[in-house]
């Protein structure tokens, strides 16, 4: 059992939880994820690690309530426990000195960006962070991320905070500034955002990493449910990823595969709401 030590409501359906998980906290690195299962009937879902504290033996997850499991998780409170938590899984981000890195988080993808921002800064990079969301309520970890950023920007679709527009508009402005060459772009967020960013950086030939979130079951390379096509080769996001070269990912296939159980998910949500 893994106890919930802290819970914050970041926006109406976006929540943060700090969980007691000493073994995972000890090994976690930026870019990795966990698999959790709430109870005996629960499904296994992957969530990227938003933060970890090795001393305290805790990890932090941030999630959007989109499906049955995340909704159910959102109803748990401090002092409650979840049944299973395994990790850290996946390959860590390749943290090194690239030079100037632009780190982009979209929506709930801002959460896993935070440890990467921190690590990239510590590795001596000039860190430019861009956080994007539909509106100001969905911008999270603003203070935390800006603290480790040399330049920090916010974009919202509705202009309620920062620049009105998409992260890609801002990214293009940054790339076109003549004074500073961008050495690496990293984007985590909705698939469409990662695709747009990758299409843009491909034009400028800038190395781009994206962190993918396909449907998983075991998370250890066993089921292949999370397979993605990268450069025409089948890769497993759970063991080969979750980060891949953004220019090589088949986003269309990824979007499609993430819709595999959408009807069942809707049904399960209805059942859950019926119980509430």
């Amino acid at each position: 059992m893994y106890e919930i030590l802290e819970k914050k409501v970041l926006s109406p359906n976006e929540k943060l939880m700090k969980l007691k998980a000493p073994l995972i906290a000890k090994k976690a690195q930026a870019g990795q994820f966990i698999i959790l299962r709430i109870d005996d009937q629960g499904e296994r879902i992957p969530l990227t690690i938003a933060d970890f504290d090795r001393e305290e033996g805790t990890i932090t997850i941030i999630y959007l309530e989109v499906g049955k499991t995340t909704k159910q998780l959102g109803r748990l409170e401090v002092g409650d426990s979840i049944l299973n938590l395994a990790g850290p899984l996946g390959m860590p981000s390749e943290i090194k000195k690239y030079g100037t890195v632009v780190l982009i988080g979209g929506g709930v993808g801002i959460a896993p960006l935070y440890p990467i921002v921190r690590a990239m800064k510590a590795a001596g990079n000039t860190v430019i962070s861009i956080l994007g969301a539909r509106n100001k309520d969905l911008i999270i970890l603003e203070e935390e991320i800006s603290e480790y950023s040399d330049e920090f920007y916010i974009t919202t679709d509705d202009g309620s905070k920062g620049t009105k527009g998409f992260v890609s508009n801002l990214l293009e402005d940054i790339i076109q500034r003549k004074n500073k060459k961008v050495d690496l772009v990293m984007a985590i967020g909705p698939i469409i955002m990662m695709k747009v960013v990758s299409d843009l950086t491909k034009k400028y030939n800038i190395k781009t990493l994206v962190s993918l979130n396909p449907i998983m079951v075991d998370g250890t390379g066993m089921c292949g449910g999370c397979r993605v096509s990268v450069g025409g080769k089948t890769k497993f996001a759970c063991v080969d990823g979750p980060e891949f070269d953004g220019h090589l990912v088949d986003y269309q296939n990824l979007m499609l595969r993430n819709q595999r159980f959408v009807d069942q998910e809707k049904h399960a949500c209805k059942v859950l709401e019926g119980q509430a």
Binding site: Q41, C223, F261
Partner: peptide, 21 residues
Amino acid sequence: NEFLTRVNMMKAYDFPRNDTP
């Protein structure tokens, strides 16, 4: 593996009482 894991270990045959579809 995915199919059998869903059905056997995760009990997808008993969806939605079990969450895995």
